[in-house]
Nucleic acid binder design. Structure first.
Length: 445
RNA sequence: GCCCCCUUCGUCUAAUGGUUAGGACGUCAGGUUUUCAACCUGAAAACAGGGGUUCAAUUCCCCUAGGGGGUACCA
């Protein structure tokens, strides 16, 4: 049996770091098993779901390099859910209830105050036919609850090992609202059955959901898939990742200019025993991937650490990997240029700065006028290569008596306008004699 | 309130009833670059606290503290 997994975000916002960790884990598992990775948009909540968010999610995944074999929208599958409801009603597992949510909330608070677990008391189950009819005739509409079997539900979790949840400690989940719309649990299970999902890989926040869902799979006559619940991400400060955490949206990380690969490696690798380190591609990560490497405690998502990884990744990337994107940003340098400057980049767009340094125009900074003038006079004729710099700078040293920092800083400042950067040995031939000469004279070039 | 999970260098983690508790990132130092960055080498740096069990506990048990998750007509 080939593995089939799914990533099922609800399009009620853009993807954030925590979401893509789930997506990545699913995708990598599918890759490793040569299985299918499906994208399922859980858009049954028509109030909060939007087309724009759905589009955004697809964009984010595409950017990260996660491709899906199939895209499914729950809003297209309402008929299937209705059919499942019919079957559950027929088998007596779904029962109507008439409490309002305000009423239920009040009841929960009372139970809590008395130190009791806030579990639904199944009052609706005790309603007689007459009482139900009266409620209906008074205009009350029913919502429908799934009647749980009071027993221990166990499964072998892919990451957490043997898990037990006592269904008796859970409320019977509402599956259908008064207005006929469905709550997460039902569509999710129906889809997993219809789509032949073999492994459900999701965040730890779903552990308790798994028990009712396993019962639902069984009530619908299907075998439950395998489950794996990964650790969640927390902020750099160690606090829970808020769903509104704008700074950690994938969109914002992309806008910051970070590499998709760095973001993916970071999100997939923190909280595992694999080192957070650059890899040439996502596939390099797949080979080493294993659920047993996931920690069971929350991992910190630290943007500062991600930026460091991004820089390290850039430093090892070959020219071919970035050539097209460099051209798109107007950087026409070739391999020589790339290899000279990549070690000084934090984000790829920094290459634009160094491209301007080698191709102009640029305002030089003249820190030592006398030295620069003498240096200009000593510039050898072209052609230049990477031996030119040391010969020339030695000549300048002899002529001026300047050495060390006093020699190199003024030259760097004049030639590049910056007080730091790639080796001048490599930069100088790229800048060329004409520009170097002009800049040493304080002219924009 | 109750239930579940977790706690090892600053961070992500490895291992183990007896170890100099290992690695990676960061930090610091040195080297290289007659400058800076990049790069190379090295160093400092941890078993949350308290009780047990044991010849021996970071490892097993209990308690406390802290963190995370759940307890929805959210997903």
């Amino acid at each position: 049996m080939t593995a089939r997994v799914r990533f099922a975000p609800s399009p009620t916002g853009r993807l954030h770091a925590g979401n893509i960790r789930t997506a990545l884990l699913n995708w990598m598992f599918a890759r490793k098993m040569s299985g299918d990775f499906l994208l399922r948009l859980d858009d049954t909540d028509s109030e909060r779901s939007t087309q724009a968010f759905a589009k955004g999610i697809e964009e984010d995944l595409f950017w990260l390099g996660l491709d899906w074999a199939q895209l499914v929208r729950q809003s297209d599958r309402i008929d299937r859910y209705a059919e499942a409801v019919k079957r559950l009603k027929a088998s007596g597992r779904l029962y109507p209830a008439y409490e309002t949510s305000e009423e239920l909330e009040l009841r929960r608070k009372r139970q809590l105050a008395r130190g009791k677990p806030p579990i639904y008391d199944r009052a609706a189950l005790k309603l007689t036919d007459e009482e139900r009819e009266r409620l209906e005739s008074e205009g009350h509409k029913a919502h429908w609850r799934f009647k749980l079997e009071s027993r221990d539900v166990a499964w072998d979790d892919l990451v957490r090992g043997r898990q037990h949840v006592d269904a008796a400690s859970l409320s019977d989940p509402v599956l259908v609202r008064e207005d006929g719309t469905y709550l997460y649990t039902l569509p999710s299970v129906v889809d997993d059955i219809d789509l032949g999902i073999t492994h459900v890989i999701r965040g730890e926040d779903h552990v308790a959901n798994t028990a009712p869902q396993i019962q639902l799979f069984e009530a619908l006559g299907a075998a439950a898939p395998a489950f794996g619940h990964h650790n969640l991400l927390v902020s750099a400060e160690g606090q829970a990742l808020s769903k509104r955490e704008r700074t950690l949206s994938i969109e914002s990380l992309r806008e910051e200019g970070l590499e998709a690969l760095a973001v993916a490696i970071y999100a997939a690798t923190i909280g595992t025993s694999d080192a957070v380190a650059p890899h040439a591609s996502l596939d390099d990560l797949v080979a080493a991937f294993d659920f047993s490497k996931l920690s069971r405690s929350p991992a910190r998502f630290d943007p500062a650490e991600l930026r460091l990884l991004n820089a390290k990744l850039l430093h090892m990337l070959p020219y071919d990997a970035v050539a097209e994107r460099l051209r798109e940003m107007g950087v026409e340098g070739n391999t020589d240029f790339w290899e000279a400057v990549r070690g000084n980049l934090n984000v790829l767009a920094d290459a634009k700065l160094w491209w301007r340094v080698v191709s102009g125009p640029l305002d030089p900074v003249i820190a030592d006028k006398d030295l620069c003038e003498k240096a200009a006079g000593l510039l050898p004729p072209e052609p230049w290569d990477d031996a030119t710099w040391s010969a020339w700078s030695a000549a300048v040293k002899d002529a001026t008596g300047a050495k060390g920092k006093a020699l190199f800083q003024p030259l760097r400042l004049a030639l590049t306008g910056e007080d730091h950067g790639p080796e001048l040995k490599l930069l100088l031939p790229l800048i060329g004699r004409a520009r170097a000469s002009a800049r040493l004279a304080g002219q924009t070039a």
